[in-house]
Simulated assay, not measured.
Amino acid sequence: MRRPLARRATALGISAALLVPVLAACGSDDKSDQKKDGAKAQSADELVIYSGRNEKLISPIIAKLEKATGTKVEVRYGDSAELAAQILEEGKKTKAGLFFSQDAGALGALSNAGLLAKLPEKSLNKVDAAFRGGAGDWVGVSGRSRVIAYNPAQAPKAPDSVKDLTKPEWKGKVGYAPTNASFQAFVTGMRVLEGDEATKKWLKDFKANGAKPYAKNGAILDAVDKGEVALGLINHYYWYEKASEVGADKLKAKIHFLPGGDPGALVNVAGVGVLKDGGQSAAAEKAVDYLLSDEAQKYFAGETKEYPLVAGVASPVDGLPALASLKAPKIDLGKLDSLQKTLELIREAGMV
């Protein structure tokens, strides 16, 4: 299902990385199921989840989680960065037992603040070390790769690096979404890999080469498919979702997974962490284990076309390259929390 574009939110709280306007990759819900009295869940069979993944996607699997674990779950939905900042503000008085983030950066911010509890080794070991926190306090649930969408009529062969997109041959022919969280995570990844100055230069050169801004990934894919642009920077699942809706044979657009550890091949994750001060550790750990179960992994892989991260769980998506075959850059995903500097560079490049 397509991710709804969330409103631009100002993240609250202490973390400088989160005290900035961000465009979430998931929806928000003001009619939260959070407890009205604001008290922590006291029973081992109760759990409050702050979820940066949208309600339409999460509610069916939450119902399955409740049944499988015997846990009563209440969920507050919102923007991942905003919810992480809320947890930072709540501190030891947090109402959340589990944080389910749309991206690794928000989890990294909470880890750096010492607010996440170390997870049991048996849970961590289900997922490759590249897709979990270095401190052992959060773990990825599903993954997504950045790709280049291309229209074969205009680009018979897609470039093998995002760095090629500043060349004259692609002037005015590339679509991107500068206010979208996934693009911002990619830029943050480039900063971590290559430094601020190199990233700043790439952003300015890319903008100067006539790259065309869009509001979201889905709009970019549609533009590539219609021939409005030859290339587009998106997450892989948008193409597979569209192919599932209309048929792969009906799509003119194709996608290219970049080789060689290119910054444009970043694999980011949605993941979970247990709140150290939430008073719900037992229930939260059961929830983590359920989200890493075969049933939950297959749910996310089928519904979102993302990658399952637990070893031995295969994706049901036809034609999706195996996660192990991707040549993603080697990066500590927790370092994607440095969003403040990324947004400064994007603004300096005149993209927003």
Rank of each mutant, 00 (worst) to 15 (best):
A6V: 12
S338E: 07
D318E: 10
N217I: 15
G350T: 01
E285M: 14
E66Y: 06
K200N: 08
K40V: 11
N112L: 13
D196H: 09
F300M: 14
Y299R: 03
R76P: 00
L266R: 02
L116M: 12
P316N: 08
L83I: 00
E228Q: 08
A129M: 10
L98T: 00
K122H: 11
K92Q: 13
A282G: 01
A283I: 08
A314H: 08
R8I: 14
L83E: 00
V127N: 06
E169D: 13
V127M: 06
A16S: 08
T94I: 03
L221G: 09
R2H: 14
G38F: 14
G140F: 07
L323E: 01
L119A: 13
S32N: 04
G140S: 07
K286H: 07
K250D: 07
S315I: 11
V274I: 09
E55P: 01
Y240T: 10
K200Y: 06
L203S: 02
Y290E: 04
A253C: 02
S28N: 10
R2I: 15
R3D: 15
G143Y: 15
K157R: 11
I14D: 05
G264P: 03
F131R: 06
Q102G: 14
N112C: 10
P159C: 07
L57E: 02
L292K: 04
T69G: 07
L221Q: 03
T94C: 09
F100P: 00
K242L: 15
K122N: 11
E194A: 15
G247R: 01
A265F: 03
E303G: 09
E241D: 07
F100S: 00
A81H: 05
S101F: 00
G38P: 04
L47E: 02
S182I: 06
V75T: 04
W138Y: 14
F186H: 12
A25D: 09
L251T: 04
A301Y: 09
E46P: 03
G134K: 12
Q34W: 09
K226V: 11
E169S: 11
L292T: 03
M1D: 11
N209P: 01
N217V: 15
D337F: 14
F183A: 07
G273A: 06
F206M: 09
A104H: 01
Q340S: 14
A253E: 00
L291C: 03
L251V: 03
E197C: 10
A349Q: 02
N112Y: 13
G27P: 03
T94L: 05
L339I: 10
V267N: 04
N54F: 01
F257M: 09
S32W: 01
V48T: 15
P316Q: 11
V162P: 00
K327W: 13
G302P: 06
L18V: 02
G105E: 11
K276C: 05
I62V: 09
N268L: 13
S293R: 04
Q280D: 07
N180F: 13
V162T: 04
D337R: 15
A185K: 04
R53W: 02
K330E: 12
A155V: 13
L343H: 07
E90M: 04
A181F: 08
R3H: 15
F183Y: 07
K201Y: 11
N125M: 14
N217M: 15
Y176I: 09
A9L: 14
A181W: 01
L88K: 03
V288I: 12
N54V: 00
A328T: 05
Y50T: 04
L165P: 02
D225E: 10
